[in-house]
Design a protein around this nucleic acid. Sequence first.
DNA 1: ATTTTCACCGACCGATCGGTCAAGCCCGGC
DNA 2: GCCGGGCTTGACCGATCGGTCGGTGAAAAT
Lengths: 224, 224
Amino acid sequence: MTELSTMKDGVANQAEASDRVLQILAEAGRLFASKGFEGTSMRDIALACGISKSLLYHHFSNKDEIYARVAVGSTLELYLFVRDRIPDGPPSQKIRAFMVATAEYFRRYRWAWIASTTAFWNDPDRSRHKERLTRRDRFENFLRGLIQEAIDAGEIRKVDVPMTGRLILSSLNWMHRWYNPNKSATPEQIAEIFFDMIFNGLRSGELVELPGAEPPKAGRRKPR
Amino acid sequence: MTELSTMKDGVANQAEASDRVLQILAEAGRLFASKGFEGTSMRDIALACGISKSLLYHHFSNKDEIYARVAVGSTLELYLFVRDRIPDGPPSQKIRAFMVATAEYFRRYRWAWIASTTAFWNDPDRSRHKERLTRRDRFENFLRGLIQEAIDAGEIRKVDVPMTGRLILSSLNWMHRWYNPNKSATPEQIAEIFFDMIFNGLRSGELVELPGAEPPKAGRRKPR
DNA sequence: ATTTTCACCGACCGATCGGTCAAGCCCGGC
DNA sequence: GCCGGGCTTGACCGATCGGTCGGTGAAAAT
């Protein structure tokens, strides 16, 4: 049904990979996430895996390939992972499900997620980088489609679609900087809270009816 | 009046610093922002400044100190910069001003901002790191104070204050990952749009009155 | 029984890393 | 004149970087 059956140990989409390769990818992802790409040496990865540095080059051609497997493998599956978790129903609930599913992915594949979204990368191989951006665009365009759907259905205001997508993704993408798995809520619960805040707004009660047409840029009304 | 009078060349709070030092800080910030801390060598910085590597060690004791001057100098002034731009008025408008001021700081000191918020850092000197976190906490607590103010004034719902602060800061902190200075809106305009979305919510028109008491976790109401 | 395959390792390579140092350059005060 | 001190430099250091190489030992294939 889904292509995600081979996920394990927090490493996504590494079908047909040996246990050792999965171990290397998991440890490398964790190190890339916490120390960055240039901050992580091949010796660090080998030491974390309890193997010799040479063995890394037996399974991967170089450091870039390890990072690419972590990052590209991660970003590919994010789209499929989320898409398969969007239920039929009102568009606004699809957006909610999008946020919750993305948060679930973050919780499951946390290190690969962080490594792929934050670690720096020289990228001598341009094609790998373009592939990553293409997948990221597809993910973002998928969200924009849901937002447009919600606008067409009249469930949300006529907001700027790309900007709305950026706001939603910002709330999810920044989570790794403050989220502590040992305390408070799960990422999914946090995503639900953020959805509530963004969808319903922070403003308290008594607003009754938005004026019919509002400026396309930012439909604000001056208080006082 | 304000302590920010010595800002120049995108480098904040480096009073009594020579032009050369300011140049080094500016170039180093730009490099740290685009290639990370470990990804930037002292040779890179020297080359960007058109000077020898030795000269860096004449003005700074080591690489960490350069980064600290960029990052800590940046985070210190962010708080003062924003605080001085919050007008008297309704608390919700203070939050709006907070977001716009933070965006203005981002626009002005973009490289130092990015370097301080994203580059990895070994941090052998624990005190510098703690100072940075202290300042960051002060900045975040300042925002939480404004949110609590708005709740007490009845302008916004009884939301989770820390979580609301995280949502607002996420929208601002993630901006550097997609913002393109050559196109579209200014950071300040983007901040205003985000404020509108978060404050008023995305939901369209006809909501009439929020139920008196809502669950503390996430005040959602099931559509259908 | 022999060959092939494959996971694995220790020693090593040239390049680059952060950092040092002794010496020059330049310019205002005597 | 010339002298002292802050900029500035190139040569150099040990450590570590990503990556290579020859080889080992055990299982699989023949």
